[in-house]
């Protein structure tokens, strides 16, 4: 679910970058990057039965 949300957020940031105000696009981009890093850290610290 988090990956669907991230992709949806990126599509929205792209639309804002193309049509909306620049400061909003920059702010949303920063939020998405933080969410990506958080998702990665969650995955990297999770105990996995399989290695992917």
């Amino acid at each position: 679910m988090e990956f669907t949300a991230l992709l949806l957020a990126i599509a929205i940031v792209m639309l804002v970058a193309w049509r909306g105000p620049r400061p909003l696009a920059l702010g949303l981009f920063a939020a998405v990057m933080i969410a990506c890093v958080a998702t990665y850290l969650h995955h990297a610290t999770d105990t996995l039965k399989l290695s992917f």
């Binding site: 990956f3 991230l6 992709l7 990126i10 599509a11 792209m14 696009a25 981009f29 990506c36 998702t39």
Partner: peptide, 13 residues
């Protein structure tokens, strides 16, 4: 793999 796709898309912003 999904996270890598996401970051390729982020590269486009």
């Amino acid at each position: 793999c999904l996270l890598q796709r996401i970051l390729f898309a982020t590269l486009a912003i």
